[in-house]
Simulated scan of single mutants.
Amino acid sequence: MDSTFMGAVRARTDAAIASGDLQPIVAEQVVMRDAGLPFTVRWVAALAAKDAAKAGATPATTLPGGPRDPNFNPFLPPDPALTVGPLGAHHNVVLNKFPVCLHHLVLARREFAEQLSPLELVDFLALAIVLSDAGGLGFYNGGAAAGASQRHKHVQWIPAAEGNASLRYLGEGLPADIAPGALARHPGLPLRHCFVRVEAGFGCDPEAAAQAMHDAFGRACAELSLVPGGEDGLLPPCNMLVGDGWMLVLPRSREHFEGVSLNALSYGGTVYVREPAQIEAIRAVGPLRALASVGIPEPGPAVA
């Protein structure tokens, strides 16, 4: 049976699809293995619609938080047809207008903050409430180079489902017996990154999980030298994923590989493309090489 929260998400989704404010998910996918790791490459038609919507926007500026039209903010106010409702004191739950899967949620700050301003405890509390209620994967695209399409501060969530991104595909390469808060690297990821063992997910106390995630993010940023800088105190571009007992944080150098936008979910084992031909671009080099090309190189053996 649905929780009250997920019941509201499903009801809003059904209403938005019925009204035409949200398009049904149309996707095709293939599974590839690279260095023993399984990757799903999924073509999602909604992403092409997202590009078409951007085409009519004001040209991009150089603002560090990102894309593409600084005068457009879809979260102030959020579209009523896509809004599930408030979440805690600081966030609204909004259906992603261009979802990569069913029930893809945006947890957006009610007041404007730059997307590259460091994640705060309240951001992790919003994620913790959803993860505790429904499991799944929380994630953050920090800046345009990390795949963010809006400057307004937000984190996102997708449910656990076949073909959806998660950290489970990396589980066998991570130590199973380390304490919460301990750091690790995955020997199969050829780029700079940091895993932190974190107790956050289905059934966890949201406040305790939020604090654990906030602490984990701080430790990972320190390990990776992701230090706020400049007059605005913004982070360098980065991604964060949290679920299945782990948090993954990694710095980013750019958004695209061969025209394919790679965001946090790509590091969760599912690469989303705009058109079927892009599947072959990923296949030609392998997903790991594509992911490494938009991250930061880190030669040498991985250590736990």
Score class of each variant (00 low, 15 high):
D232T: 11
T83S: 06
V294H: 03
A304T: 10
R42F: 07
R151G: 14
G230C: 08
G245D: 03
F202G: 07
A222P: 07
R109G: 03
Y267Q: 14
P175Y: 05
P175I: 11
L82P: 05
A145M: 06
S117Q: 12
R33H: 15
L121I: 06
V155P: 03
P24Q: 09
R10T: 06
D69S: 02
R168A: 15
V155C: 10
A222I: 02
R168M: 05
H154P: 01
P187L: 00
L170E: 01
L250T: 12
M6N: 07
A89G: 14
R42L: 04
A46R: 12
L288N: 12
T61V: 11
R10L: 11
C194F: 01
A144I: 07
T13K: 04
A146S: 06
F5N: 12
L107G: 05
L250S: 15
E199Q: 13
M1P: 10
L234N: 08
V303Q: 02
S117I: 00
R219C: 07
D51T: 15
G201K: 04
P206V: 10
D79Q: 10
D34V: 11
A16S: 12
R283P: 09
G85E: 05
Q23D: 11
V271F: 00
K97Y: 07
V249E: 07
G229M: 07
L107T: 02
S166C: 03
L121G: 12
E231N: 02
V106G: 02
L116K: 14
L248C: 01
A220V: 13
H90M: 09
R10W: 05
F217D: 13
D123P: 04
A165D: 05
A144C: 00
C238D: 01
G181H: 12
Y169L: 14
H103T: 05
F139Q: 13
M1K: 13
V249P: 04
R12T: 14
R283M: 05
N164W: 00
A144K: 11
L116P: 08
A212R: 04
D21Y: 09
A55V: 00
T61Y: 05
G65T: 08
L121E: 13
A208W: 00
Q278C: 09
A16Y: 06
T62A: 15
P159G: 08
G233Q: 09
A8I: 02
P301Q: 05
L170N: 09
E111R: 15
R254I: 06
P86Y: 00
D69T: 09
P86G: 13
G147C: 06
L116A: 12
L87F: 11
F124H: 15
F217M: 03
N263G: 13
A304W: 09
L102E: 14
A176K: 11
S225V: 12
P59T: 09
F98H: 15
